[in-house]
Each structure stands twice: as structure tokens, then as C-alpha cells.
Design a protein around this nucleic acid. Structure first.
Length: 466
RNA sequence: GGUGCCAUCGCCAAGUGGUAAGGCCGCAGCCUGCAAAGCUGCUAUCCCCAGUUCAAAUCUGGGUGGCACCUCCA
């Protein structure tokens, strides 16, 4: 398996610390608001990575954190006159539900900042003891970036030359402008956590380093985890700082491989609150089947920037439809899991830095070929079994085609409408039987008005929501 | 200003040295009462210029045009 390492900027063969095992830590959401399409993309990318690693036989330990200590959370709680826990609990639950709708598998470990404070204290103390951190007069603890000769090696940035000026300009008590808070002292009585360094709250970057040490890191390994992932924007400063803390506090680097997923833009514009075009996942899920969103968001390479627009989403749906139409042709048949050449090829392209486009091309070719054969007379028993086994593999590795095909095509249609459609189809079939095609075509138009396509097959008339 | 990424058919999008995958749209056809679905066939020489090479979309140099990050951010 090969993965593009966004720090070394090259594709590297994946060689885990322990043979047959893989550990993966991904930066998860800060739960102060609804998840947007960017969160979805990131979660989906690492979901795919975990699935492909597992398909390659790795015993994967997958951790994705929940940041539940944050200024924005505290602010929101104050605004809405709610407790921190109410806010984080609500958005964590919403996040979980939305992830489930997208078919994202739950991480093996989902650490929360509030449950990892001890690990953070340990890390801070180590950094203070080793001279990599200092306490200011205000009671804040900062990481001393000048004490780390490898600082900025991750993001390959050049140290700012204007440190002196900035120190004069700001009233900050930081030694270097790049220094970042490990612990922020809070004296105003707002939400605080007790610590050996006084009351306050931890710095964001520290959370991930601490959680990795607590849950994944092992003694005598050169790296704490095999793979560390997150959105492309996290490389600097978040991951740079994480790497610095871990490097200076422990005797290992934080990660061997770095994976960063590309950003989601909406209709060509960056998603942001200030632009007002934030596309919340919950809104998208009201309109589209979660699996369609999964298929669409996963449909182009994880590293490229993704331009979300509804036209492309419709195109993606059409492509996913093809999987389900063939599944309808095979509905009700049983199969054994047999290994096919298709599956080998599929895993091969996915193992090359998650080449989803090649994978989809293979799937389309497999579908066309199966349809072609099924269109010819005969029972095609072997082909059907093989195709079903292929579909089972696609479900497992890609999470596509996991639903009942009939239900999939009825997404978003309420029971009353279904009944009406059913009645109209009955009437149309009667008209057809009487060769009253004028009436049957008129009835078909009525059905079409519901946004529903119908198709006559040897097994009867079926309908699909367009 | 610093750092980095990208530029392939109308649209989406693979391919990092060996002569352009796949999907959508379009056209022609098979099937169908007609459709829909399915199937078949057709449709690009890879932003520009120069270079390296037997061979380049793929490497090098120079342009042009997009984009991202630079301590809120998946």
C-alpha cells in the first residue's frame, strides 16, 4: 500500500511500526456547531483509508478525537445560557448521527479533551521540566518554539524575521511570536479546569498530542502513531505545533505518515461563516440520501480541492444509481464470498493512495459487463454469484450500495405519495393491457409529475425517484 | 511578501516517460406499443513556448492563468 505523505511531499510505501498493525489518529470536530460538508469530506476520506487498510489485512486502530474544550464552545454556552456539556453533548450526538447517515464507521477510539486532561498535564509538565515551556506572569504556559530546532520542519515555513517588532507591538509576554499556549490561565470565573498550573483551559494543539500519547503511543517506537490525518488547513499551525510538543516532551516523533485531505468549496467559494455559504451537513442530508453524499464527496481524489455543486451531485447520483439498478436485477439471490479478479484490481488501485477514480472506473466496467451478459438469454448463475460477491466487496471497502435497492430509489418519498404512485401504476398497467396507450401515457405523465421515473421490465413495472 | 499546490474532451475526472481510463451531456443504433432502464458504436494529444529523450500529458527551464496556507478553521 502506498500513501502520499504531505510532509515529505511524496508517495511512500506504507510500512507500519508493528507488522500487520496500523494506528491512525485523525483530528475530529470541535463540537460547537453543526458539522458542514468539510467535516463530512474529512471523515469520509479517513473512513475510506481505514477500510482500505483493513482490506489489506492490517489490524487498524483508528482514533478520531472530539474537541469539547474550546473558546467557541464556551462562548456559545454563555450566549445560549446553557452548560458546556449541553452544547458539546448536543453537537456530538448530531455529528454521530450525521456520520452514520454517511456510512462512516465509528472510530475505535473517540477521545474527548475533557477526558484527557491528566494526559495534558503530564505533557505540559514534561515540557516545562525539559525547558521547552515556560510560565508567564499572567499564569499562562507557553511552548518555547525557539527551544525546538526542528520547529517548522513539518510545514517547511521560514521563521519570521519580525519577532522583535511583534514583541514590542503586542503586550504579550511570549518569548517568541510563534510560541503557542499549552495552558491558558483563566481568572475571570468563566469555565475553567483545575490544573497543577492553576485554573484555566488547555491550548488546542496540546489536546491532540496528549490524546495520542494516552491512547496510541507505545514505548520504544520512533513514532507515536503510524498515520496522522486531518484537513489540509491543519498542517500549520496545528500539526506543526502538535509535532513540536510531542517531539520535545517524549522520545518519539508524533507520526510517521501525514495525510491531509483537500478542502470543500461551495460553488467555487470557500465555505465560511463570514461568507454565509456554509453548507451544513444536516441540510444536505434533508435533501439527499446520505449515501449519495458519500458517493459524491468521495468521488474525486481526497487530496484535491472539492468544489461542491448540485449539478455534479446529480451526476454522482446517476453513477451510484447504476450500482443499485444492477443490484435490483440480482435482488433476492444469495452468494458466497468468493474472491474475484475484480476485487483484486479494485483493492490494488485503492491501495495506491486511494485512487478512487480508477476504482469507480473499474466498478462501471464491471457493471456494464454484467448487464451486457444479463441482457443475453440464459440463467448466468455463475456471473450472478460473482457479481453479488463483487458488490459485497464494494460495500465493505467503499461503503457503496449498502442499502436495499428498492428503498434506495424511494428516498424522500412519503408513504401517501408512494400509495398514489402505486395506484397510478396499477391503472396504467390496466390501460396497457387493453392497449389503450393514450391513457397509459397520460397516466405515466401523472406519475412523472411526482418526480418519479417508471420502467417496465419482465418482472413488472418499477419506479424510481429521480 | 513567504510557502506550497494545480492547469487533461462542453462538464466532472484518472493517468508522473512508451504512445490519452471512467462518468455526465450529445449523436447513431439495438431493445420497447412509445418511453425509461440496459446494451453497442462515435466524440480530446493533454494552458503556451523552449529543451532533454528513440519516445513526454508525464522530466527540465521560462511564461500565462487559477487556488490554498501564513497562528479561528476538517
Amino acid at each position: 500500500m502506498h500513501l502520499y505523505d504531505s510532509v515529505q511531499k511524496t508517495k511512500r510505501k506504507f510500512e507500519p511500526l508493528e507488522e500487520g498493525k496500523a494506528s491512525l489518529y485523525v483530528c475530529g470536530p470541535t463540537v460547537y456547531d453543526d458539522a458542514h460538508l468539510g467535516h463530512a469530506k474529512s471523515a469520509l476520506v479517513f473512513d475510506l483509508l481505514v477500510r482500505v487498510l483493513r482490506a489489506n489485512g492490517y489490524d487498524v486502530t483508528y482514533a478520531r478525537n472530539i474537541t469539547d474544550i474550546d473558546d467557541k464552545i464556551i462562548k456559545k454556552a454563555a450566549e445560549q445560557n446553557k452548560s458546556i456539556k449541553e452544547i458539546t453533548g448536543f453537537y456530538t450526538e448530531a455529528f454521530h448521527q450525521e456520520m452514520q447517515a454517511l456510512g462512516v464507521i465509528r472510530p475505535d477510539i473517540e477521545p474527548k479533551a475533557t477526558e484527557s486532561l491528566e494526559a495534558m498535564f503530564t505533557l505540559i509538565q514534561k515540557l516545562i521540566d525539559s525547558g521547552h515551556a515556560y510560565t508567564t506572569q499572567e499564569g499562562d504556559v507557553y511552548f518555547d518554539t525557539s527551544s525546538d530546532s526542528e520547529y517548522l520542519s513539518l510545514s517547511k515555513r521560514v521563521q519570521e524575521e519580525d519577532d522583535k517588532q511583534q514583541r514590542v507591538a503586542s503586550s504579550s509576554l511570549k518569548k517568541n511570536s510563534a510560541d503557542f499556549a499549552l495552558w491558558k490561565s483563566v481568572q475571570d470565573g468563566s469555565v475553567t479546569f483545575e490544573s497543577p498550573f492553576g485554573a484555566g483551559r488547555p491550548g488546542w494543539h496540546l489536546e491532540c498530542s496528549a490524546m495520542i500519547e494516552k491512547h496510541l503511543a507505545k514505548e520504544h517506537q520512533p513514532y507515536a502513531v503510524d498515520i496522522h490525518g486531518g484537513g489540509a488547513d491543519l498542517l500549520f499551525p496545528h500539526h506543526e505545533n502538535e509535532a513540536a510538543q510531542t517531539r520535545c516532551a517524549t522520545n518519539h516523533a508524533i507520526a510517521n505518515y501525514w495525510i491531509h485531505n483537500g478542502f470543500v468549496n461551495i460553488e467555487g467559494e470557500k465555505m465560511s461563516k463570514s461568507l454565509g455559504n456554509s453548507f451544513f451537513l444536516k441540510d444536505a442530508l434533508k435533501e439527499y440520501d446520505g449515501e449519495v453524499l458519500r458517493f459524491y464527496l468521495l468521488g474525486s481524489h481526497y487530496r484535491s480541492n472539492f468544489n461542491f455543486n448540485t449539478d455534479d451531485l446529480q451526476v454522482a447520483k446517476k453513477r451510484l444509481d447504476k450500482i443499485y439498478r444492477l443490484k435490483k436485477r440480482l435482488f433476492g439471490l444469495s452468494h458466497n464470498f468468493e474472491k474475484t479478479e475484480f476485487q483484486t484490481k479494485l483493492l490494488e488501485v485503492l491501495s495506491d493512495d486511494l485512487n478512487i477514480s480508477s476504482a469507480l472506473a473499474l466498478i462501471d466496467e464491471m457493471i456494464s459487463s454484467a448487464n451486457e451478459t444479463l441482457d443475453t438469454p440464459g440463467k448466468h448463475k455463475a456471473l450472478k454469484k460473482e457479481t453479488l460477491a463483487n458488490f459485497a466487496y464494494i460495500e465493505k471497502v467503499l461503503g457503496f450500495g449498502v442499502k436495499n435497492p428498492y428503498e434506495y430509489f424511494q428516498h424522500g418519498v412519503d408513504p401517501q405519495t408512494k400509495e398514489k404512485i402505486f395506484d397510478l401504476i396499477q391503472k396504467r398497467n390496466e390501460a396497457k393491457k387493453a392497449k389503450d396507450f393514450a391513457s397509459s401515457d397520460k397516466l405515466r405523465d401523472e406519475i412523472l409529475a411526482f418526480g418519479v421515473n417508471i420502467m417496465d421490465t419482465p418482472d413488472g413495472t418499477f419506479w424510481e425517484k429521480i
